[in-house]
Design a protein around this nucleic acid. Structure first.
Length: 269
DNA sequence: CTGTTAGTC
DNA sequence: GACTAACAG
């Protein structure tokens, strides 16, 4: 072996070493993030978290959220609803509390008092009845949005119950929910909490064979129409909100599923 | 299930 | 302000 060849070999080995080390660092960093997190992120479903347009993602035990300070509410909350989570414990409702994990300061519940609007859960308390801690955690003001009572207890409640039905039927679903924080919105309270004109809910099922999605976009008013009348494509919601919902999904699958507004794979029985 | 309000200390 | 009890869709 010539000296020149030897140099090339050494350079090659060094380059490979540096590359491997950097790769190791990236993996290490990712592992650390996962360790700091929670149940959601310990699962493969951590990769279903949407992007944040606000730069402030907060992780709780049972759900994650992206907080929008100007609107004093999350732009999305995301969590996996496992089949095993479904239960009918009848926990006593706690009081709403400010989420201390929101560094810019989450809204106070006082903004909602006498506003005429409900403190509408985005991650529903009804999805977290498998233990009291998880249940209480949904009563943070970083998880609520002002909702008209007839809407909240009406079609929105019906949709939430449908999600539980699907979680049971399809062995769990991953859920992303929020208000559409765009355009002109009324505000309530001294902190000017925005009242969304529309709410969305997006589901992905990766547990029962082939991956499937469904998205709903509901006007902020009650309706007697069937839920499937409000099905849209994930692309539609992304265009409205600016959020990229399943960035970690394989591109080919993501592109195809997110463009579809078909609900044939979801049972509305 | 989804919630609020009145009355009390 | 925190808490219970009662009530409503």
């Amino acid at each position: 072996m010539s000296k020149r060849t030897l140099y090339y070999v050494i350079a090659g080995v060094l380059a490979l070493g540096v590359y491997s080390y950097e790769y190791f660092l990236v993996v290490e960093e990712k592992a650390e993030i996962i360790e700091l997190g929670n149940e959601v992120k310990n699962e493969t479903n951590e990769f279903f978290l949407p992007t944040s347009t606000t730069g402030q993602i907060v992780h709780h035990e049972g759900y994650s959220l992206s907080y929008s300070e100007p609107h004093e509410q999350p732009e999305w909350v995301a969590y996996e609803l496992k089949k095993a989570h479904l239960s009918n414990a009848n926990f006593k409702r706690p009081y709403f509390e400010i989420d201390e994990a929101v560094k810019t300061g989450a809204a106070h519940w006082r903004n909602y008092k006498n506003s005429g609007y409900d403190r509408g859960h985005l991650c529903p308390a009804g999805d977290k009845q498998y233990n009291k801690t998880a249940y209480d955690e949904t009563f943070l003001t970083s998880n609520i949005s002002p909702q008209v009572h007839d809407f909240n207890s009406g079609i929105w409640n019906t949709l939430e119950q449908k999600v539980r039905y699907w979680a049971s039927k399809y062995n769990g679903v991953f859920v992303v929910t929020g208000g559409v924080l765009k355009g002109h919105m009324k505000t309530i309270g001294t902190e000017r909490v925005a009242v969304p004109n529309q709410f969305y809910k997006i589901l992905i099922d990766n547990n029962s064979g082939k991956t499937k999605m469904i998205a709903f976009l509901l006007p902020h008013e009650n309706s007697g129409k069937p839920l499937y009348d409000f099905v849209v494509s994930v692309d539609d919601v992304e265009a409205l909100t600016g959020i990229d919902f399943f960035p970690e999904l394989e591109d080919a699958i993501e592109t195809k599923l997110e463009a579809s507004s078909s609900y044939k794979d979801w049972s509305f029985k």
